[in-house]
Simulated assay, not measured.
Amino acid sequence: MPEDKDQLPAWLVVDPEGAVVTFSKAYEIKNLKLDRLTLRAPTVRDVRSATSASAGDDDQRDTILLANLSESDAKDLEGLKLTDYQRLQAAYFRLVQDDGV
């Protein structure tokens, strides 16, 4: 049976205020071993600040933005497996998606 396009994956919980992403394994983030991170919903200020700090590097902007929204450090996020980093990106896009409601 095909998966419902709007159904969230098991590793993601989203509400209007933020998202919780569960990783495939625990990572050291801010000197703690964590297997999940919470992203708060972004503001325009968050996006502008990350864009300004990244000096035109889109990948760096994304990392800065995700670090800010998760209250972690960009260096910590750079140590994630790519699949776990992509989970954070997917959560971000769910948070900024306009459901038309």
Rank of each mutant, 00 (worst) to 15 (best):
L65M: 14
I64P: 09
M1E: 12
V47E: 14
S49V: 01
A67P: 12
L80K: 07
P42A: 08
S70R: 11
W11E: 10
L80M: 10
V44L: 15
E28A: 08
D99P: 02
D73V: 00
L77K: 08
A10W: 01
A90S: 13
D57R: 10
E3H: 06
G100F: 05
F93D: 11
A41I: 04
K81L: 12
R40H: 09
G56D: 13
V47H: 13
D46A: 05
S54N: 09
E17A: 14
V14M: 09
L65N: 11
D57G: 04
V20H: 02
E28C: 04
V47D: 10
L34D: 02
A90P: 00
E78T: 09
R48N: 14
L8M: 12
V47Q: 15
A53W: 02
A26G: 15
K25G: 11
E78H: 08
A50P: 05
L66I: 06
D84R: 06
Q97L: 14
D84W: 03
K33R: 14
T63C: 08
A55W: 06
R48M: 13
L66S: 04
P9A: 13
T43S: 15
P2M: 05
K75C: 02
L39C: 04
F23M: 07
S24M: 02
I29R: 05
D57H: 10
L65T: 06
A55Q: 14
D57Y: 04
A26P: 10
E17H: 12
A26Y: 02
P9Q: 08
D99Y: 03
D57T: 00
R45C: 00
A91W: 03
L82Y: 05
R61A: 15
Y92P: 00
V20W: 01
S24C: 04
